[in-house]
Amino acid sequence: MLETIAQHPIAAALIALIGLALLFGALLGFAAVRFKVEGDPIVEQIDNLLPQTQCGQCGYPGCRPYAQAIANGDSINKCPPGGQTTINELADLLDVEAPTLDEEHGEEADVATVAVIREDECIGCTKCIQACPMDAILGAAKQMHTVIADECTGCDLCVEPCPVDCIDMIPLATSIKEWRWELPAASHEQADNLIATDQGRGSEQNSGEAA
């Protein structure tokens, strides 16, 4: 065996190379089948970051279509309900610079709102029920409708179709349980340009000059 290899070094090398090529080819082929990924996982990930209000403010009919659009290269700053947090998360995920929210698509709401139907004015037309992407409105034809506040995402979509304008977007009241501390931003910004050693430097210089 060794002798034959020694006698035909070129042939032996060729055989070895071909053998290796076949081996790795088979390995790769197996991996391609075994670890196949169904669909586009990035869309799933983007969709997970979006707030799922299904409000359509981005210009797409729901959060998933927008996720698909982002995956296809659309800009990531079109989601006002998600706000800067969502943009940052998306930027993180896609490894791009985080832009600010595109105001064209709406402003980030300070407080979450929830739709409330003025029930004595409701005529029971079911238009808001059809508009609600969450199935968060209960009611039947010619019966009073009402919003399940816990399911409402505050997307506004029910306000437009209401023929009697009896739907209000009410800011969600924060109870003492939901209250949270806020970032101490203001005082920090103020002192940003100061260094401790800068304080009183002018007076020192003045005194030095005097001396």
């Binding site: 969709d47 979006l50 707030p51 799922q52 209000t53 299904q54 729901g62 959060c63 947090t85 992407p133 969450m134 199935d135 968060a136 399911e151 995402t153 939901e178 209250w179 949270r180 501390w181 970032l183």
Partner: peptide, 22 residues
């Protein structure tokens, strides 16, 4: 930040529920 994260968790839960509903 803790408050933010808690809120985010609540929001996430809600958005998951919203997605399922949607």
């Amino acid at each position: 930040a803790k408050g933010e994260i808690r809120q985010h968790r609540i929001d996430k839960e809600k958005s998951d529920r919203s997605r399922r509903r949607f």
